[in-house]
């Protein structure tokens, strides 16, 4: 049963990623694209954790944590660049 649940949720997450990708490509504005990218990395964390659960290992935790941190920093850096034209003032 657990394996079925993991498979269902993985496919749900893939659909969510495709929806985000649509918004990322369609745009209309740069902030929409950043928001879509931000949502995409959060969903990919979930996907990585699900893969870890499927394989029954803890190894993927570090990868998920790294994506969480880098994703946050890059989102803030992109926003800052759009706001000020400069990242470190």
């Amino acid at each position: 049963m657990l394996n079925t649940a993991i498979m269902i949720v993985s496919s749900v997450l893939c659909i969510a990623l495709v929806l985000n990708l649509w918004r990322l490509l369609r745009g209309p504005d740069l902030s929409d694209r950043i928001l879509a990218l931000d949502t995409m990395y959060i969903n990919s964390i979930a996907l990585i954790l699900l893969y870890g659960m499927h394989m029954g290992t803890n190894l993927y935790f570090e990868g998920a944590l790294l994506i969480a941190m880098l994703g946050f920093v890059s989102t803030v850096a992109l926003c800052k660049y759009l706001l000020r034209g400069d990242i470190i003032e």
Binding site: T4, I6, I8, V9, L13, A16, L19, R23, N43
Partner: peptide, 21 residues
């Protein structure tokens, strides 16, 4: 318990992406 939590999580993540679109 784990399956129900996973399904709830998947539902909310999907709602977030649907909202984004």
């Amino acid at each position: 318990l784990v399956s129900v939590l996973l399904l709830i999580g998947g539902f909310f993540v999907l709602v977030g992406s649907i909202g984004l679109c």
